[in-house]
Every structure is written in structure tokens, then in C-alpha cells.
Design a binder for these strands. Structure first.
Lengths: 149, 149
DNA sequence: TCCGAATAGATGTATATGCATCTATTCCAG
DNA sequence: CTGGAATAGATGCATATACATCTATTCGGA
């Protein structure tokens, strides 16, 4: 009998959520020596790519509600991994990696890379790349429609 | 300028999580007249497909930790939408839809279908089906490896 | 038979996520 | 310039999710 296989789900959303849960568990396990979750690592990685950025724009990039970021960034801020400045528009909060945040991120990268490499190998390089592109295209399509008047 | 487009992310996991967030927001909005979240709808839909099932098996099907189900099922149980029996193995909880749960599920199906249809149209039927199959294959591959000794 | 190992969930805690609502600031029509 | 509309976040609350740990039950070998 072995492992009962998992059935396809009729719901596109449930299919995505299930995949996200399953994959997240692997990345979280890989990152656990650093104390980072995959959500937190993703924030550091995004900041390392964008440089200083407003909270709202960061939310757009990650398709994450700005008020969600208020909470998750707060956890990261308590660790001293980010800096926050008031923007020229004084309603804005401009976020950037602190030196400690850069160091923490760099410590975590090899563990993240390991998880990513293992997952890509499991799925197959070709299929993995293809999948990632498709998911990104889908995300772009939804996000673009979202931002219409 | 319009809407700043969202960049590709280097992390496979972050790509999945972002897609799941974005899609979930649409389904949650569509289901809101019923008071169901997409997570809760997915549970009702899964139960409607499996019939009576143990909590553990339900967790396998949805790639959801069994203790997570303790919490989420509890919310649903408060509404009277599920029934729980102790199994022949008395450690097990066997879950099934109550009549009220069936009714609630059936009320929600058209709204879910609407969201699903709109999303599939946005992505394109062909691409949508392709994407869903790829994600399911990937999920299966990960879940199968997971369940090795 | 009996006892330790394994399994199914329950409980407590921490993070993740979004909405409704609120405040502070900016923008814009008049 | 001014006052109302719009915008950027903050706050409080509810749900989503998983892990560590605990209890109850079952299983398997001596």
C-alpha cells in the first residue's frame, strides 16, 4: 500500500494553497537553523533586491496587504534586521535592510539555496523552470487585472 | 504609467506563496456573502468528495498538518457544519458533513464556480488546465517523497 | 500477558494573513 | 488658500498554519 497518494482537487485556489503549504514546510525546515521562516527570508530577499522601498510598494511586489506587512515587518524589526525612515511623502515608511539584516540574509542564503536546489531536482530542472514561469505569468495576469480602475 | 508590474521572484516557494495569496483574495471576496473563507470552503468541498474520513487522512489530502485541522475544523464545527464520531480505532476522529454543512456548501458552490470560471477565463482555459496539472504533479512528487521512511 | 514504542489528536504558543477602522498626510477642485 | 477626498500606514481582531508537547489509545515483541 505505501503512502496513499493525494488526489487532484477541483479548485484552482485550493490546488495553489496546498502546493504553497507543502513547499513552505520544506523551506521552513531548511531555514530553521537560522530562526527565519520562509516568509521572513522572502522579505529580506526582496529588500536585498529592491534596496530601500516603501512599505506599499513592497506589498505590491509580494502581493501582500500593506497592513500584513505592518505585522510581519514588525517581527523582523524587533530583531534589528531592517531600518525604517519616513519618506519625503511623510505618510510613507521607507524600508531597507540593516547591516545586521544583510548579515542574517547572507547566512541564510546557502540553506535557502539548498532547499531550492533539492526541490528543483525533485521536480526536474526543466519542469521546474516551466512551472515557475507559468505561475509567475498567472500571478502577473491576476495582479494586472486587479490594478485596473 | 499605470500599474507597476510585479517582478519575478528568485524563490520557487515565494512564487507559490505569492500566487496563493493573490488567488485566495479573489476567492475569499467571491465567497464573502456566505461567510465562508476559501479554506473553509475547501474543507467542505473535500468532505463532500470523500464522505466520512479521519482527520489524519483529511490532512494528508490537503497537505495540512493534523493539528491545524483541529483548529480550523473547530471553527466549522461551531457553525454545525460537520459531525465528528470516534472511530473504531478510538484515537481517530471521523469527520463528515452535517446536513447543515451540505446545505451551506451547496449555497456556496455557485459563488466558488463563478470565481473559478473568471480566473480560468483570465488565464486562458488551456493554460489554466495546464498550470493546474503541473502544480498537482509537483505537489504529488513532493508529498510522495515526504512519505518515505 | 504486559510494557515500551508508535500513532491520532488536543492544547498552547508563535507567526502569517487580511479586513474594518482609525490617524496622519497629501492632493485637488473651487 | 481651503476643505473634502484620497492615500499610506497603524491598530485591533479573526482566521490560517505549524510546531512542541501532552494525553489517550493501539500495536508489537519478549
Amino acid at each position: 500500500m505505501g503512502h496513499p497518494s493525494i488526489p487532484a482537487l477541483p479548485c484552482l485556489c485550493a490546488t495553489f494553497r496546498r502546493a504553497a503549504r507543502l513547499v513552505s514546510q520544506r523551506y521552513d525546515a531548511a531555514l530553521s537553523p537560522t530562526g527565519l521562516t520562509i516568509t521572513q527570508f522572502t522579505l529580506l530577499q526582496a529588500l536585498s533586491l529592491t534596496g530601500e522601498v516603501s512599505q506599499g510598494r513592497l506589498g505590491e511586489i509580494l502581493a501582500m496587504d500593506s497592513t500584513t506587512l505592518t505585522h510581519t515587518l514588525d517581527i523582523i524589526r524587533r530583531h534589528g534586521w531592517i531600518e525604517r525612515r519616513v519618506g519625503a511623502d511623510r505618510r510613507q515608511r521607507r524600508i531597507s535592510l540593516s547591516p545586521a539584516g544583510k548579515a542574517q540574509f547572507e547566512r541564510a542564503v546557502p540553506l535557502w539555496q539548498q532547499a531550492q536546489t533539492e526541490l528543483r531536482a525533485l521536480l526536474g530542472e526543466q519542469r521546474s523552470t516551466n512551472l515557475m514561469n507559468l505561475v509567475h505569468q498567472a500571478t502577473s495576469a491576476v495582479a494586472e487585472q486587479e490594478s485596473l480602475p
